[in-house]
Amino acid sequence: MREILPSWQEHFTSDDYTEYCWHAPTVRLYIGRPTLKSPDQSYKYPNWVMNALGGLRECVDSMI
């Protein structure tokens, strides 16, 4: 993850994790997202395709 950040940037995301880390042990998980392989490099699926795949148990369970 560090390789995709500019050298001056120290953190990957921002949220309210500092609020609840005081109360309970915290773990952040990054998982893969299911995508379809494009028929050729110039073709791009519409955004709704990735959102639809993210709601299918068959696609998500294998990524975790």
Rank of each mutant, 00 (worst) to 15 (best):
M1N: 04
M1R: 07
M1G: 05
R2K: 14
E3D: 15
E3S: 14
E3A: 09
E3Q: 15
I4P: 01
L5I: 11
L5N: 13
S7L: 14
W8R: 08
E10A: 15
H11P: 06
F12K: 05
F12D: 03
T13G: 02
S14I: 06
D15T: 01
D15H: 01
D16K: 10
Y17S: 05
T18C: 07
T18W: 13
E19K: 15
W22D: 10
W22L: 08
H23R: 14
H23V: 13
A24E: 08
T26P: 00
T26K: 00
V27N: 06
V27G: 06
R28N: 06
R28D: 01
I31R: 14
G32M: 01
R33N: 01
R33P: 01
P34L: 01
K37I: 05
K37W: 08
K37H: 13
K37D: 12
S38Y: 11
S38T: 15
S38F: 09
D40R: 06
Q41T: 12
S42V: 09
S42R: 03
Y43A: 03
Y43H: 12
P46F: 04
N47C: 02
V49E: 05
V49M: 01
V49D: 05
V49C: 01
M50V: 09
M50C: 07
N51S: 15
A52D: 05
G54L: 04
G55H: 12
G55I: 03
R57Q: 04
R57S: 00
R57V: 03
C59I: 02
C59G: 03
C59E: 06
V60G: 00
V60T: 04
D61A: 09
D61P: 00
D61G: 04
S62P: 04
S62F: 11
S62D: 03
M63R: 15
I64F: 15
I64P: 00
